[in-house]
Design a binder for these strands. Sequence first.
RNA 1: GGGCGCGUAGCUCAGCGGAAGAGCAACGGCCUUACAAGCCGUCGGUCGCAGGUUCGAAUCCUGCCGCGCCCA
Length: 846
Amino acid sequence: MPEKPTLDGLEDRWARVWEDEGTYAFDRSATREQVFSVDTPPPTVSGSLHVGHVFSYTHTDIVARFQRMRGKKVFYPMGWDDNGLPTERRVQNFYGVRCEPSLPYDPDFTPPEKPGKQQIPVSRKNFVELCETLTAEDEKAFEALWRRNGLSVDWSHGYQTIDARARAISQRAFLRNVERGQAYVSMAPTLWDVTFRTAVAQAELEDREHTGAWHRIAYHGASGPTYIETTRPELIPACVALIAHPDDERYQPLFGTTVRSPLFDVEVPVLAHPAAEMERGAGIAMCCTFGDLTDVQWWRELDLPNRTVINRDGRLLRDTPDWITSEAGRQRWEQVAGATVHTAKERIVAMLQETGELVGDVRPVTRPVKFYEKGDKPLEIVSSRQWYIRNGGREASVRDEMLARGRELRWHPEYMRHRYEDWVRGLNGDWLVSRQRFFGVPVPVWYPLDGEGEVIPDKPLTPDDAALPVDPTTDVPPGYTAEQRDVPGGFTGDPDVLDTWATSSLTPQIAGLWSVDDDLFARVFPMDLRPQGHDIIRTWLFSTVLRSHLEHDSLPWAHAALSGWILDPDRKKMSKSKGNVVTPMGLLEEFGSDAVRYWAAGGRPGVDTAFDRGQMKVGRRLAMKLLNASKFILGVGVDAGEPDLSAVSTPLDRALLARLTEVVEKATAALDDYDYAVALEVTEQFFWFFCDDYLELVKSRAYGEFDEAGRDSARATLAAALRVLQRLFAPVLPFVAEEVWSWWQEGSVHLAAWPDIHELATSAEADPQVLSVASDVIGGIRRAKSEQKLSIRTEVESLSVQAAPAALEALREALADVRAAGRVRDVELVVSSDGELVTTVGAPTA
RNA sequence: GGGCGCGUAGCUCAGCGGAAGAGCAACGGCCUUACAAGCCGUCGGUCGCAGGUUCGAAUCCUGCCGCGCCCA
């Protein structure tokens, strides 16, 4: 035990010991019943961890440490999510390169020291290598932070969502979905981001207010013009019908007839469909392929032709579409061929003004438009061949199964279940899993080519399981040779990668080594806990439940714990901007890891919490207090062995242990329910009371100033209480708890048994009032002395206590301790008529 | 527009049917032999607003206002 205990340096010292001793190593001989397994969120490796990560990962660690002390073999791996667009973008900016899949691999390529102004095109393989290099560096820094933060992770069970094993597992799971018909390929209208040139899924959409303008435009019928209103006049050449509500009397005569489009003179039918809104615009809409999701619905349900005019790069087709047949129409198309959507709109509006087919003023309007959450241009809808996984968006039976899984899962807090149910009920299509990107898990299929060299899409070729992971753009399917690539009668590889969630949804399988080490998998799956943010219930949580349901017919985990957000105080008050960036490592160094963990532990499950340096200071004080209190108690002279509770003969001591028993019960129940905040609160509250009142009360007796029995009773109680308190704090304050435990106990506190109420059971019944009255009276003495501006240690002539008879009776049991702690010479006990406790002290002794 | 959550002391938050709480801050003390990175004490609130249920409401119900998240 050091002379002057300090918190400085505890993190490095104990982190090294834990690593050397394998304190948190998973015992893989354990059976499933003995295991507590955690499906840790793999942080996205695209930059740095922030305070919010420290916050929520600490919550998980507290639970893991608690379960470990309860005797569970804890499976607590850490993964890195380094697969997907954020990494691609970071690599592009960091190295100044871009992926050009047509280029050959250059094994000698090294990126420039500093990224140049012009991005250097590199092959897909070079690009992926750069992704791996950069993420490896980031991951080192992340691991160092987590170790410093005290996460009790078993680092030998790490994974990357882009590593070969994860790719193989991801592809295997996908191919098994294909085999069972749970995944399928389909040519369909798809939401498309023109910047990233990739399809996006429903889960990646967000609505944003976008300014547009209503244009009133004339279509021409046999009996005169029909006016429609549209915000997208550039889609006139893509128009396949005009549509009004079947009950709309204004358009009854037109249903079944045809009209001709302005400028391009294409004949389209006028049709009825209930999705047309009578109150909106003119009540009759142009259906184009495709302006929005309603167009898709009409196109599908009314069996309309596909007249796509927008390319995947967001520009209009260069060639004149064959459905534009009139000479004037074809000339007008020349004006917009190859133009961006924006330019095409301007030119078409100008032409409409010329021809007089644009009627009245253009009226600005702001309305919600769908964006890719990472994009900055509105999504277009294009027809393309994509892979989908059935998720209940199209089949009620699957949806009901997913709802049942949601009810089966235990949610913490419970109300988070609604978000899941709302999402499942609102699904409107299957899960689109193919992406037209480079850095990801390749879609593991090839397609045969017919005699003309055209793709035969409905007969995908799949790899042998042993060959996984495969890259179809370089690997060759079974039964073919490399020379047959992209030649008639040969094959072509699917160029796409899987949605990042298609791999992330398999984290329990990846961490547990499903299909790689099935023995391990059987010991950890289904897992116990998924901790995660509430914002990704619709994506990560839902997709993980789905994949597990499809592959294993079970939930992936029994419990989901949803953590809240960290609210940046600056963001609340938008006017203020501090400008000083707080890095997690800086905080850990400034306050100590235990102090930062203390702040995190104060955030109730699921509740957004303010970033609060004040709480970190408080946490530091608590850690310091634990050092000092431990030092004091050990200095009094207590035994390190199992405390001899038969020596606890003094009523005050029995009452203390009884109160601590309640604390153990409450803290245990709270942690069993994943409520670390309540567990900490009750422990902390008791601990301050223990230090401020109990320690002061028994100090003299423990030093042996009275009789031997009293001394032994105090020492046994102090030892028992300290052993319990150090362990109660261990999950939240792992470093300082380990430090003080090491002063007198063998082994790691983190492998010690969680406190059990039986280790506090004394032979005789305890009277809690002895402790509460003694505490009240000592408080009264302090108050009285404080009012007289006396030192607490000043000895006074007399103490008078007025109280109810029962309270006085209890007080007598602890009177010697109270007298010693309060430094009073004479004591007078007076029965009070109203039962209220009144403490008065006399003058200081001379 | 719908779902969910939240409005309690200057600040951060507990409490969620039986006398308004904690910590921080502020203020006043104590140089107390574990701890001045300590200790003691004091101040401070129509529990968002309006109704209702109840012997009793911060707590349950209804409506409204404000904030946040998710989804249309």
